[in-house]
């Protein structure tokens, strides 16, 4: 219930009407959206019970490792009611054609693969918010100072998931495991996304805000 309350408000891409239509505009819109969502994610993390008790260094390490997984998981959950479309924001939905034009076809395919996994599972909001928090604490950062404290936080989130499934999905004792087994595909997809946006950064044609750049650099 804490995680449901902590869930951020809807986000809007609001593409700049002064920019000419094209791939640069689409990528600029997505990078701006990601930058604003990062601010929201940092605020969200603080509402995960126990997160703020970690050292500042460990809070930073977890977010630096997991931010793209959290961003993608949010896109995936927003896209569940749609057919072959990715809901990057309430006002920014991309289909296959649009993704191809912006050079994001590979990423579109990978994220859609995840969407299909969660659709098949009929993932619920309670499960999604818990999975997001688990992804943050399971980020396998190599820079954690207090491994035990992070493990304790992860255990409490894992316990919340198991408790929820024990109550709501007694018909499928494997359900918590099935949900956790989607995390490798999420990790793989996030790695691809980071690589892609890093190469866009190197090309230097798309303006990027400072926080997005900072987080992108922390991943490479």
């Amino acid at each position: 219930s804490h995680l449901l309350v902590a869930e951020p408000e809807k986000i809007y891409a609001m593409p700049d009407p002064s920019l000419p239509e094209g791939d640069i505009k689409a990528l600029t819109t997505l990078c701006d959206l990601a930058d604003r969502e990062l601010v929201v994610i940092i605020g969200w993390a603080k509402h995960i019970p126990g997160f703020s008790s970690l050292s500042l260094g460990d809070q930073m390490s977890l977010l630096q490792s997991a931010w793209m997984e959290i961003l993608i998981l949010s896109v995936v959950f927003r896209s569940l009611p749609y057919e072959d479309e990715l809901v990057y924001a309430e006002d920014y939905v991309m289909d296959e054609g649009h993704s191809r034009l912006t050079g994001l076809l590979d990423l579109y395919g990978s994220i859609l693969h995840l969407v299909r996994r969660y659709k098949k599972l009929k993932v619920e909001k309670e499960e999604f918010v818990t999975l997001k928090a688990i992804a943050l604490t399971n980020s396998d950062s190599m820079h954690i100072e207090d491994v035990e404290a992070v493990q304790k936080l992860q255990d409490s989130l894992h316990e919340a998931l198991q408790e929820y499934e024990g109550g709501e999905h007694q018909e499928d004792p494997q359900r918590a495991g099935k949900l956790l087994m989607t995390l490798p595909l999420l990790r793989q997809t996030a790695a691809k996304a980071v690589q892609h946006f890093y190469s866009i950064k190197v090309q230097g044609k798309v303006p990027m805000h400072k926080l997005f750049l900072e987080m992108l650099e922390a991943k490479v």
């Binding site: 603080k46 260094g57 900072e214």
Partner: peptide, 15 residues
Amino acid sequence: KEKHKILHRLLQNST
């Protein structure tokens, strides 16, 4: 950590 100053600042803000 100096390189990650925005993240650091946002985590310290008590919002």
